[in-house]
């Protein structure tokens, strides 16, 4: 076991998979010479050469779509967007091409494409600070992962690269420096579609996504001191979504809070709520509570941003309300 950061986990996954498979390539804006604006990919061009690691012009439509074209013709491209928000500049390529080319052509092709999407509010405002997973959960054909710790960051990225389907890989900017333990196994993979029970408990189910997970764990500590042992579930993959993990937990606890950095309306929590109506209504002992961004864009100034982003206190209060 070693202790690494989340950023290191991502980089190790890239390096290991590129060494393992020559069809894996990596490109995006500023990823080669500069090593990425978040410095995840520094040194990769030197190791793998300009043919496999290169910079692109500011042309998200062309280079994300090219990722689809390259995946159709035998490569496993990893495309880096500078910010997850830029997914919206390339909607056709993500939704209609990556998501639907295979289906529209009767399964004739596989699309082993990974799009890395740095997400999360970090004082960068409405067009650079979103966690837009929920938008893409609504479109068929895309797999979606949002790791919350270094081990998952690495294991999920390696699994995503090896997957034969397009995967949107959301890496939270505020987690890059987070530390955690990881196994040395070069084939350490975290399967897509499998949730993690980040902490076991029976008083309440707290589902937390991405950067909400560390906050949720802190809330769980605080509640434990007050005598409430809650369960924290980290879905890790939002598509495929591990429905049974949440249903089983709710059967045990009867109470659920969902903490996410998405907008409230039709966010991940909304889908979880609908799923529980369908699959576990008679196990619910309290109404669902969602801790999410009220339906406003993400403001830039810290004081405003912190007002809308779910924090430990808001998650704690939601849990307390249900535990009362």
């Amino acid at each position: 076991m070693r202790t690494i950061t989340y950023a290191q986990g991502i980089k190790e996954a890239l390096v290991e998979e590129m060494r393992r498979d020559p069809t894996v390539i990596l490109y995006g804006e500023d990823v080669a010479n500069f090593g990425g604006i978040f410095r995840i990919t520094s040194g990769l061009k030197e190791e793998f050469g300009e043919n496999r690691v290169f910079d692109t012009p500011i042309s998200e439509n062309a280079f994300v779509g090219a990722g689809v074209g390259a995946a159709l013709t035998g490569l496993r491209p990893v495309v880096e967007l500078q910010f997850a928000d830029f997914l919206f500049t390339t909607g056709d390529e993500i939704v209609l091409k990556a998501g639907m080319w295979r289906y529209g052509h009767g399964g004739a092709y596989k699309i082993p494409l990974v799009v890395r999407c740095p997400s999360g509010a970090a004082g960068v405002g409405p067009e650079h600070g979103q966690c837009p997973e929920a938008f893409f959960m609504h479109t068929p054909g895309l797999k979606i992962v949002s790791p919350s710790n270094p081990a998952d960051a690495k294991g999920l990225l390696k699994a995503a690269i090896r997957d034969d389907n397009p995967v949107l890989y959301f890496e939270h900017k505020l987690l890059y420096a987070a530390k955690g333990e990881i196994s040395d196994d070069p084939d350490y993979l975290v399967p897509l579609g499998k949730a993690a029970i980040a902490r076991e408990g029976d008083a309440l189910t707290l589902v937390a996504i991405s950067a909400m997970v560390p906050k949720a764990l802190a809330v769980a500590d605080r509640l434990a001191k007050e005598g409430h042992h809650i369960e924290v579930i980290d879905p890790r993959s939002l598509c495929p979504f591990d429905r049974p993990a949440i249903v089983e937990s709710v059967k045990k606890t009867g109470k659920i809070v969902v903490a996410e950095e998405s907008y409230r309306t039709l966010g991940v929590g909304a889908e979880i709520g609908a799923m529980l109506m369908e699959e576990a209504l008679e196990y619910l002992d309290r109404p669902l509570r969602r801790v999410a961004i009220p339906d406003v864009p993400i403001p830039t100034a810290t004081v405003l941003e912190q007002f809308v982003i779910p924090n430990e206190e808001k998650i704690y209060q939601a849990c307390r309300e249900l535990l009362a």
Partner: peptide, 9 residues
């Protein structure tokens, strides 16, 4: 009667 679905079950 106002009861949670779980309580009813």
């Amino acid at each position: 009667v106002i009861a949670s679905p779980r309580a009813k079950r």
